[in-house]
Amino acid sequence: MAGETSEYTLSGFAVPDQLDAVHELLGRAAAEHPELDPMDVMLFETALIEIANNVVEHGRPEGEVHWTFTVRVMPDQIEADLKDSGQPFTPKTGEAMPGDDAEGGRGLSMAEMIFDKIEFSRDENLNHWRMVRRLGQVPEELQI
């Protein structure tokens, strides 16, 4: 697989039950790419799920938002495109991690810490998240 790009896709509704399918999608990608550092996969999964959670929680009309994930495993990075049919909105990127006692508001900050690139656009009536994590950049303190 070295030097090639493998693509994995998932389509469905942005509802809580479908979060497991997102985990399974990444599980499939990881299983077919044993060369990936498990921590890279774990962090990517953590960040992607936070963005997916965001769509599930805030996408309207609730229960009717359709989404498509495309995950690409490349020699030097993993990337994901998430397109959803929810209402237009502007994500609040660039915000600081909330204080230690906050019970919410960490999801997007976590994703921004993990992804090397996170871009949002509105294309053809779809919200489009593009997320990239370069491989081999696991901070020393997170090494298993």
């Binding site: 999964e45 953590t46 936070e50 959670n53 006692d101 906050a102 019970e103 960490r106 999801g107």
Partner: peptide, 16 residues
């Protein structure tokens, strides 16, 4: 096997 920010929030709420 997996925790997200909602899980963290629940633990923080429980701690408080």
């Amino acid at each position: 096997d997996f925790i997200d920010s909602s899980g963290l929030g629940a633990l923080i709420g429980g701690l408080k």
